[in-house]
């Protein structure tokens, strides 16, 4: 069973569809028991960081996420919330990854919206993926490069396209919206 965290940031339909299309059953939940007992947990999110973080804290989900021991995948805002802090609404994050989330300088169009490739890649999440492959990004804030960075993409500046530490994985791009390449990355996670 793959648990998809239900909270106040965006809808999770696309993530759910993609995971199901890969042959896994899903449950969209904020129930602590269900989250703890799932084989994998996906922490998606499209929305605003400080209000999402506030919601997670109110529900006690911040503690629950930090304490998960199975593979966890944060996507987009989910990834940003797993970092130390975010400039979006000046909020602290879950502190799983040792990176700050900063706003892109407005020297090009912000948000970055569209398909972009990688300048470096490593780790199991990217088995069979190469630097030329493109994934779909939509974001105005980025996680700085840190020791947990496993993929780098360039837009205005190099930033963390993916992070990994222990059982925690995260992508800034949307694997569920990145056609075949995205499904492969999602499948790599689901097979961990």
């Amino acid at each position: 069973m793959i648990a998809i965290l239900k909270y106040n940031a965006g809808n999770v339909t696309s993530v759910e569809n993609a995971v199901q299309n890969l042959g896994y059953s899903t449950i969209v939940t904020d129930d602590v028991k269900a989250l703890r007992s799932a084989d994998k947990v996906i922490f998606p999110g499209v929305g605003e960081a400080s209000s999402a973080m506030k919601y997670l804290k109110e529900k006690g989900l911040d503690q629950v996420i930090r304490a998960l021991t199975q593979p966890v995948l944060g996507i987009c805002l989910g990834m940003q919330l797993m970092c130390d802090s975010s400039e979006e609404g000046e909020t602290e994050g879950l502190g799983i990854f040792d990176a700050k989330v900063l706003k892109f300088p407005a020297t090009a169009l912000v948000p970055q919206m569209g398909w972009n490739n990688f300048t470096s890649l490593k780790g199991k999440l990217f088995d069979g993926i190469n630097l030329e492959n493109d994934c779909y990004f939509v974001h105005s804030y980025y996680a700085e490069i840190c020791p947990d960075t496993v993929a780098v993409t360039d837009y205005i500046l190099p930033f963390s396209a993916a992070l990994q530490k222990n059982n925690f994985y995260a992508t800034q791009f949307h694997p569920e919206k990145s056609a075949k390449i995205g499904l492969q990355i999602l499948n790599n996670f689901l097979k961990l």
Partner: peptide
């Protein structure tokens, strides 16, 4: 829209 979302994996 629901059917489209279930079938396609690009934005």
């Amino acid at each position: 829209v629901r059917k489209i979302a279930a079938e396609i994996n690009i934005p």
